[in-house]
């Protein structure tokens, strides 16, 4: 499994933990699936929890000013962001 595949699997698992959508709905997410602004469960507190868990599980640090609609708008945006941050580490 490549690093990206593993990141994808781990991110889906984390989203399931935070959103409680069930494994099937999370597995069905595509790069275009909307996150922040599209899912009512994802309020600012839930996003804060999600980001903190992302930092823990992917061993990256996310600055406040990196967090915006470009990073969290869709599943693909978030996966790309994490993959890039892990590449920098």
């Amino acid at each position: 499994m490549t690093l990206t595949d593993q990141t994808d699997t781990d991110l889906r698992s984390l989203l399931n933990d935070v959103l409680g959508l069930g494994a099937a709905r999370v597995a069905a997410m595509t790069a275009d699936s909307g996150l922040f602004g599209a899912l009512p469960e994802l309020d600012s507190m839930a996003v804060a929890g999600l980001l903190t868990e992302i930092e823990d599980r992917f061993d990256i640090v996310i600055d406040d000013d990196e967090v915006d609609g470009d990073m969290l708008g869709t599943y693909g945006d978030l996966l790309t962001f994490i993959t890039r941050k892990r590449g920098e580490a």
């Binding site: 600012s44 507190m45 804060a48 980001l51 903190t52 967090v67 915006d68």
Partner: peptide, 17 residues
């Protein structure tokens, strides 16, 4: 500090919105 960080982050996000 981890609890506080998460609370601060939620506030910064809400302000940004």
């Amino acid at each position: 500090s981890a609890i506080l960080r998460q609370l601060l982050r939620a506030r910064v996000l809400a302000a940004k919105e």
